[in-house]
């Protein structure tokens, strides 16, 4: 029984992990290459989810809606980069935080205007609604498995892009030493616009995939944004590999903590006290991990070397 629960929670943790990775991948590259704090990254996640919900209303097809939502989020990301963020690269972090916080407010209101005040729901098509018995007798939602598979596939694709291709070489070099890359003749701004667009699209994909499991509403990006920041701090700012490892770590620890912390604490204290304290401690676990990493390895688990 416990083993089954453990497997199920591991899968849930993986699912949260890959979702966080989709968010963190873009965030870590933006922070790593341009030294830019973009609080509005969660808004792109929300934009992805909203686009999917609206396109679903228009087209009636979930798959089509999801496929349309990606280029739409890419487009929104490029516009945000060109219109707003470009003016902020040379400014200090406080200015960047203020301006991108403004973007959060802007996007939260904008989705109200476009999507209405009510939360939207993304209905799964029937072929994704089923349950799968990975272990006989223990059905698990098919859609969650699809999310894990898509997340891992994107992570693999991104890994190959970053480590094996010419573009990836430039991205890594940019994260390591922007001035030198510029001096060699690489248009780092253009490279960065492309990277930002890619990051926006990944955040949008996260939003699209989260859509059916949460309510699509204004402000939905904020929670996941905070988790994504925790991920990139733990993983090492600018590192895709770090983001991947940290995202899975956070996903698993958070999920496991919520599922088992009360029981674990029940071993050393009264049942009633454990039931009260367990969930509270569980929600602190990832921040404790972050504090620990910051204390022992302030540069994160996989810092891009060279800085």
């Amino acid at each position: 029984m416990t083993a089954l629960l453990l497997i199920e929670q591991t899968l849930n943790g993986l699912q949260l992990g890959v979702m966080l990775f989709l968010m963190a991948a873009g965030l870590t590259l933006v922070f790593g290459i341009m030294n830019m704090i973009n609080l509005a990254h969660g808004s792109l996640y929300m934009v992805g989810a909203y686009c999917a919900a609206l396109f679903l209303e228009w087209t009636g097809s979930f798959v089509l809606a999801a496929l349309l939502a990606l280029p739409a989020t890419l487009l929104v990301g490029l516009v945000v980069e060109i219109v707003v963020l470009r003016t902020l690269y040379e400014r200090d972090h406080l200015d960047q935080v203020l301006a991108t916080f403004g973007l959060i407010l802007f996007f939260n209101e904008a989705v109200h205007l476009v999507g209405g005040a009510e939360a939207l729901y993304l209905d799964l098509p029937t072929f994704l609604k089923g349950q799968v018995e990975i272990i006989p007798g223990s059905p698990y939602p098919l859609y969650r498995l699809v999310v894990i598979a898509v997340g891992l596939a994107v992570a693999l694709g991104l890994y190959l892009l970053v480590t094996r291709t010419r573009t990836g070489m430039l991205i890594r070099a940019g994260a390591s030493n922007r001035a030198m890359l510029s001096a060699l003749g690489v248009n780092v701004r253009l490279l960065f616009t492309a990277v930002f667009g890619l990051g926006a699209m990944l955040a949008g994909l996260g939003g699209v995939m989260a859509g059916p499991t949460v309510s699509v509403q204004s402000g939905m990006g904020e929670n996941v944004l905070i988790l994504a920041f925790v991920v990139i701090v733990i993983g090492g700012i600018g590192s895709i590999r770090g983001a991947f490892v940290a995202a899975l770590l956070i996903g698993l620890i958070d999920t496991m903590g919520r599922a088992f912390m009360a029981d674990i604490m029940g071993l050393v204290m009264s049942h009633a006290a454990a039931q009260t304290a367990g969930p509270t401690v569980a929600s602190m676990l990832i921040y404790l991990l972050m504090a620990g990493v910051l204390f022992f390895r302030p540069q994160g688990l996989f810092p891009p070397r060279g800085r």
Binding site: R172, A173, S176, N177, A179, M180, L184, R305, G306
Partner: peptide
């Protein structure tokens, strides 16, 4: 200002 995580050859190839 070399790219420290790249090999010497990769550094020049990048250039």
């Amino acid at each position: 200002s070399v790219f420290r995580e790249f090999t010497a050859l990769q550094n020049v190839a990048l250039a």
